[in-house]
Amino acid sequence: MNQDERARHASSFGAAAVAYAQHRPDYAQAAVGWALEPAPGPRVLDLGAGTGKLTATLVGLGAEVVAVEPDAAMLAELHRSLPGVRALRGSAEAIPLPDASVDAVLAGNAMHWFDMAVAGPEIARVLSPMGVLAGLWNVMDDQVEWVAGLARVGGSAAVGPRDTPTSWRAETAGAHLPKTGAAARFGSPEQSEFPHGQRRTAGSLVATLATRAGMLVMPEEERCTTLDRIAAFLASTPETAHGDFTLPMLTAVLRTRRL
């Protein structure tokens, strides 16, 4: 994906902000706890916070949270659902916080959109010494046969390069950590994964997949055809054809520390 394509994908979510808030999953508390485990204090920045999915989990764990999100529509949903959280317009490349003002920077399904050549020094700037940087991603467990089938039917727009455990491990092993001058400020990355099954119906799973960037940037006719194909697959699969089911997921975490 070139720079223009990445920017188009990254900026696509605002048009689906309400659906994103309704259908996207939250994050496993155990995963968020592991991400924060080495943090030297309770001050946490949720960077690229979207509609507040990760923010809500952080609040539930007692963190002192500030959320930063570049998209106005996504930020409006965050304000609506979490009115007590300090939420600011900004980006990973221009964080509207003072130096050394947070003990951890977390990003939920967002770090792969950051331009780390610029964002890396910014993240290092706002982190306190020995502060934590962690990315979290919700991935589908394609070791389950019907999930693997869904990935084949939906294609890369519905199940992308970080959306299954194996592809996530390969894509994030150092790929989204600070580079270019900021690299020496961070330690070696660690990866871990935590079970996080989600209750879904066929309809709500289709609605969830419709909020993926690859789907949002598709031409309308192609998007409808893809979603119809996914719906037909779910209707024909015994595990998903009748009422509620558990979508087997993991919250996968990549973390490092500012040195």
Rank of each mutant, 00 (worst) to 15 (best):
P96W: 07
E122D: 11
S101I: 01
P98V: 07
A124V: 09
R89Y: 01
P121S: 13
D142Y: 10
V118Q: 06
A94R: 15
V105G: 00
E145L: 01
M130E: 13
D99E: 15
R43N: 06
V139T: 07
P42K: 11
L136S: 04
G84C: 15
D141W: 08
L45T: 05
A92W: 08
P98I: 01
G135S: 13
W137A: 05
E122R: 12
L75P: 00
L133Q: 13
S128F: 00
A119C: 13
V139R: 03
P98K: 08
P42T: 03
L75N: 01
P83D: 13
G50I: 03
A67K: 03
T51S: 15
D71P: 00
L45Q: 06
V105I: 03
V68C: 10
A49S: 15
K53M: 07
V139W: 05
A92L: 08
A39W: 03
A94V: 06
W146D: 01
H112T: 08
W113S: 02
M140C: 07
I95V: 13
G41L: 11
R125P: 05
M74P: 00
L61W: 10
D141P: 12
A119L: 12
M111V: 12
A49P: 01
L61N: 11
R43L: 05
L47F: 10
V132F: 08
T57Q: 04
L45G: 06
L78H: 02
L45M: 12
L136D: 02
R80G: 06
A100F: 09
P70W: 07
Q143K: 12
P40N: 04
V139A: 15
K53D: 02
D103R: 14
P40R: 09
P42V: 03
A56L: 12
L58W: 04
M130W: 10
E69A: 15
N138R: 05
L58E: 01
A39P: 03
